[in-house]
């Protein structure tokens, strides 16, 4: 369970992030997860100063475009580039676009973080 998790849609993202920015919260990080035909994105924020953390979550279909929050939090530039590169999340209007080669080299596997068929099968089979 994640405390203070708020489910939103991708269109609400920028408005919600703006609220955090206005209250001087700190951006912690984001996380992406492959749900099969959709991608789940979670962003974590911290009410600074202090240790109070809350999160925003939305899911999008693979291939759908997602707005970038780098206009509000510049520091999100690394994680958004990473999600774009490793999961194929289509983030538009990135402040700095590394063009898919921030982490990966020219001959690295493409979209390596997506789940392979073996992995899906193992997950469906359940525990051993």
């Amino acid at each position: 369970m994640i405390d203070k998790l708020k489910e939103i849609s991708k269109d609400q993202l920028l408005a919600e992030v703006k609220k955090y920015a206005d209250s001087k919260a700190k951006f912690v990080t984001g996380s992406c997860n492959d749900l099969g035909d959709r991608l789940e994105v979670t962003y974590f924020f911290n009410a600074s100063p202090g240790m109070d953390m809350s999160a925003l979550r939305f899911t999008v279909g693979k291939g759908e475009e997602v707005p970038s929050m780098t206009g509000i939090y510049l520091t999100a530039v690394l994680i958004e580039n990473e999600m774009k590169e490793l999961f194929g999340l289509k983030v538009k209007d990135l402040a700095i676009d590394f063009g898919g080669h921030m982490m990966l080299a020219q001959d690295s596997p493409v979209l390596p973080m997506l789940k392979s068929e073996d992995q899906k099968a193992a997950a469906q089979k359940g525990g051993n």
Partner: peptide
């Protein structure tokens, strides 16, 4: 102070 928080 403000920059440090804004930049996370």
């Amino acid at each position: 102070y403000d920059q440090a928080i804004a930049l996370g």
